[in-house]
Design a protein around this nucleic acid. Structure first.
Lengths: 333, 333
DNA sequence: GCCTTGTTTTACAACGATGTAATGTGAGGT
DNA sequence: ACCTCACATTACATCGTTGTAAAACAAGGC
């Protein structure tokens, strides 16, 4: 049987509350009793019961992180940083996957209200149809990424500006027929809409007319779907000068298709991505991309969340994280 | 304020225990009262408090998953499957990263004993020096992967056999000078030792003499370190016929270096990996690898864990998951 | 020696859910 | 009517921790 405060108290010859005071360190405890208690804690190998503490305090020390799919490199990197930063601050992270399934988000909300979770960091895919109602009975929420409505505190990268800059960078190497991969046809993902908007803005600036046949739709943003979409596109369209993929994962799928068809990157077509996932560096050729500090995203998200925990009222805040274009081999001229 | 059993009970005109009985469904409840209670639950939007339930029951419904680094594709894929399978069975997953830091494992053990966790799935890197003492006060543990000592229930792939088969497969395409990337010099990771053993066994079978200059050490198993290790190896050694990397991540780093040096894969050198991470399919060229069912690994780990929860005594069990060699472009002849 | 002031420590209750054991309810048999 | 038996419901105590408020203690001043 595991030791409890009671056991420690008995052994140290003090009351349970005194043991609690030593543990938490807010109420002053005299040096001599502190010593006795610490001794007893060591001897009994006492570890406090977090369920009991959670019940009493109404806080569990656990933050939920909800991502569409942990297996994708982007989500994995975000998760990694969130877990690390949270750990530094003494929080535990509970992972939830939402997939693209709205039911999952619904379940998530229910769990979030179960008092085992003090807060929620949510990376939505399609938030318009999200079940996320940031309401009274829900713990504090921070959203990651682009969303259409301002439902909660949020950390994001300015996708419009980044997509515009990337398009300009591609044009700077002399390419004019710049295609984008990842526009959404059906259900609109906010990211797709914003990145398309940035792309179109750049074209306008450049005086290049919009050519709808250069918008390659791709519903799910995975290498597989990107590869399929690009392959079937190439079957019926001429090769563009450049291909701006809305995520690095898609770009990696694209590179694979191009290689398979003997199309040289960057000689025949330049390829760029978005997110700067680690594998982009080791892609063949290495991938030009929009990079941003994911550790910073994690830090800001946690910071917003803890602030919101301290003060549930207060205005909704938005933190914008800087990005930069990283040019690698896939767009060399 | 959130509703409690008490509130629901008052509204339904029954006792708190009856509400509990309706929720848990073990004690029989008459149809009429069940209806009243369910009605009240809906009206009050009642969600049980898991901290309280955890305190009372001694179980939290949370399983911790400890991985070295969530950002690596292998860990990410495992995490994905564990989260999904756990979800299906009503468990929540709390993520812990151990890095290669022994202190982290120590902290982990402490948390694991805090009653917020019912069980632990642990993927150790270097278990010999692990702080994991599967003792009395620790919840049930399942280990993933190769370990040197049988400390707990375990799910693994037979690395020796797989490495042997891969080496034989490479030899079958006519290559004789087969190098391996990822042997460990200092602290021995069990996986490195076992995979090297399988490789050497195959050489012996083939009647190829062991050539120590074909063992390329690489401490950390990341694309970066693999790329560095291979680059400096190539500076002072002739190109081998084939390169068997002990993980796909290392293989991806290797492909990048080879491409940068103008070395053609698979014409000049064949490259193979281990783990079958998703990105291997989209590598350029696509990567030959040792594949195994990660979903099955997750399922078996969870199954062992829940069985161990039910029965803490009983013999330690080992589940071996099948593998197969998947030959892709990187080793075509 | 007594009172004040300030510091440490303690008893008690409460957080919310549920197992135990006791109580209540009704049907069926005599 | 009365008793039995099975089933449904309830009161109470408990899980381990910590906030509150009261009590114990020590130190200093007269």
């Amino acid at each position: 049987m595991r030791a409890t405060v009671k056991d420690v108290a008995r052994r140290a010859g003090v009351s349970p509350k005194t043991v609690s005071n030593v543990m938490n360190g807010v109420v002053p405890v005299s040096g001599s009793t502190r010593l006795k208690v610490e001794q007893a804690i060591l001897e009994l190998d006492y570890v406090p019961n977090l369920s009991a503490r959670g019940l009493r305090n109404g806080r569990s020390g656990v933050i939920a992180l909800a991502l569409p799919d942990l297996a994708t490199p982007y989500s994995a990197e975000i998760a990694h940083h969130v877990v690390e930063v949270a750990h530094e601050q003494g929080w535990s992270i509970q992972i939830e996957e939402t997939g693209s399934d709205p039911r999952r988000e619904y379940e998530l909300m229910s769990r979030a209200r179960s008092n085992l979770i003090d807060g929620l960091i949510l990376n939505p895919v399609v938030l318009d149809e999200s079940a996320v109602k940031v309401g009274v009975s829900l713990p504090p929420v921070v959203l990651l990424g682009e969303v259409s409505q301002q439902l909660a505190d949020r950390v994001w990268v300015d996708s419009v500006a980044a997509a515009r800059d990337m398009t300009l960078a591609l044009a700077r190497t002399g390419r004019r027929r710049i295609a984008v991969l990842g526009t959404a046809e059906g259900r609109h993902s906010a990211a797709a809409v914003l990145r398309t908007r940035g792309y179109l803005a750049a074209l306008e600036e450049l005086g290049i007319g919009q050519d709808d046949s250069l918008l390659i739709p791709c519903e799910k943003w995975t290498p597989q779907t990107a590869a399929d979409a690009l392959a079937s596109y190439l079957d019926s369209h001429p090769l563009p000068d450049a291909l701006f993929c809305f995520t690095d994962s898609m770009a990696i799928g694209a590179l694979s298709v191009l290689w398979r068809r003997g199309i040289k990157v960057p000689d025949d077509v330049a390829v760029a991505g978005f997110d700067d996932i680690a594998d982009g560096q080791y892609a063949v050729p290495s991938l030009t991309t929009v990079s941003f500090d994911k550790r910073l995203v994690a830090r800001e998200a946690l910071s917003l969340l803890t602030q919101r925990m301290a003060n549930r009222a207060g205005e909704q805040r938005v933190v914008t994280v800087d990005y930069r274009i990283v040019e690698r081999d896939s767009t060399a001229s």
